[in-house]
Amino acid sequence: MPRHQPATPAKQHIRPMPVGWWLKRTSYFLFMMRELTCVFVGGYALFLLMLVARIGEPDAFAALLEHPGSLVFHVLALPFVLYHTITWFNVTPKALVIYRGEEKVNPVIIAGANYVGWIVVSVALIWIAWIAIGSA
């Protein structure tokens, strides 16, 4: 689609985007941290991939799991994956807008439902792992 020619004046001053723009405002910085959570989400997927690649070799499996590097990774990743969870749930109501007649369903309820579901799922996962190991 053609854009019609803007009536650009002979001279205008363009301010370049500063390289460190995301350091200039707290909200920008938090945004960048939110985006960087993906490195730990992807990193954890990679860790799991390396782990399953060692199925059938219990020694190699244990060596990876107990490697100091994996422990460091887990400790670093925990705050980032939690931050991913929190930010993900908090923005869900922006994409998922539900109307009841003229009333918008309160975003807090939509986000809250996610948090409740998350806690239930997390407790269930840990409980199942516990039971499965106990019965082994």
């Binding site: 799991l65 422990l71 887990h74 925990l78 994956v81 969870t85 996962l125 840990i126 792992a129």
Partner: peptide, 26 residues
């Protein structure tokens, strides 16, 4: 990731560390 990774991370990372689970069991 939001729903499952935090709990799974606890199982693979912290449970073995705290001795709740061994690598062999996992």
């Amino acid at each position: 990731a939001a729903f499952l990774i935090p709990a799974t991370l606890l199982i693979t990372g912290f449970a073995p560390l705290a001795g709740y689970i061994t690598a062999e069991q996992l």
